[in-house]
């Protein structure tokens, strides 16, 4: 119910190794690991990747409670995606059940299993790799290591930091709706008045924040220096190599098992 559940980086158990990797390298690793898996819809590649990931994350110190607490949305999303594929996946083989457009067949069952495991294999690494990412450090990495334009990276960082204030705004507005006599009915309407007021407050705060930033010389032509250096080192390299290896092994195992099923075929 309460919005606090969303207030981002909760203090959690430290992770071995992963915590020492620059956030941008974690982002790169997540992309390199999961993007190749998007090319195929088969259970072997997805399951291989998933098993390797679970072993490695366990070694890094991710416990089962941590996994469940952080990854429950994926655990729900995976079977949901599976059900959709079960009913509407390309029919082939024997047909077991049909209703209007929905047809459950041998082919759709296989696809459903594949998609369910695939959502887990693709979703988990991002959630777990980003678990302790500090937005400030991510921004430092994006601007200093990846050389994205600092105006945009820092502007986005500063804007995103206001999220805590927005949550407080939202809570105050929820209480005020009850005080104003409109708390009994019309959830959707009430939500709309609050959503609108939140946008107004957000844009106002954003405009003021922009003024404060400009007053500190932000956005001028002067080349910027960085008070803290964002570094990458061997842990970054190891993580990236690991990611590429897992992807390669998973795809290779699917090809070897003959289940590789290109997403466009």
């Amino acid at each position: 119910m309460s919005a606090e559940t969303y207030s981002v980086p909760q203090a959690a158990a430290r992770l071995r190794f992963i915590d020492r990797v620059n956030p941008v390298s974690r982002l790169a690793a997540a992309m390199l690991l999961t993007t190749p898996l998007l090319l195929t819809v088969d259970w072997v590649s997805a399951a291989t990747a998933l098993v390797i990931q679970l072993v490695l994350f366990a070694l890094a110190g991710v416990t089962l409670p941590t996994l469940l607490r952080r990854a429950w949305p994926i655990l729900i999303a995976a079977p949901v995606a599976g059900v959709s594929m079960l009913l509407y996946g390309q029919p082939s083989g024997e047909e077991y059940w049909t209703f209007w457009l929905a047809r459950i067949t041998d082919g759709s069952i296989e696809l459903a299993v594949a998609v369910t495991v695939r959502v887990l294999a693709i979703g988990l690494p991002a959630v777990l790799l980003f678990m302790h990412v500090d937005p400030t450090e991510l921004a430092d990495g994006l601007a200093q290591v990846w050389h994205l334009p600092s105006r945009f990276v820092l502007g986005a960082l500063a804007g995103a930091r206001l999220v805590g204030l927005f949550i407080e705004d939202w809570q105050a507005m929820s209480l005020s709706r009850r005080a104003r006599g409109i708390g009994d009915h019309g959830t959707v309407r009430r939500f709309a008045t609050m959503a609108f007021a939140l946008l107004v407050l957000a844009i106002r705060r954003g405009s003021k924040l922009a003024t404060a930033m400009e007053a500190r010389g932000f956005g001028s032509e002067v080349p910027r220096t960085w008070a803290r250096e964002s570094r990458v080192g061997w842990p970054d390299l190891v993580l990236v190599v690991l990611a590429v290896t897992i992807a390669a092994v998973s795809i290779a195992s699917a090809v070897w098992a003959g289940t590789f099923h290109a997403v466009w075929s």
């Binding site: 500090d134 930091r161 930033m213 500190r216 010389g217 008070a227």
Partner: peptide, 24 residues
């Protein structure tokens, strides 16, 4: 609330210096 720019006290104070190109 609208003029705290960065999440850490030190970074926030350093922000202006960085923008002016002051050496680290």
């Amino acid at each position: 609330d609208s003029q705290v720019i960065l999440a850490r006290v030190g970074d926030d104070v350093a922000f202006g210096c960085e923008n002016l190109g002051v050496p680290r």
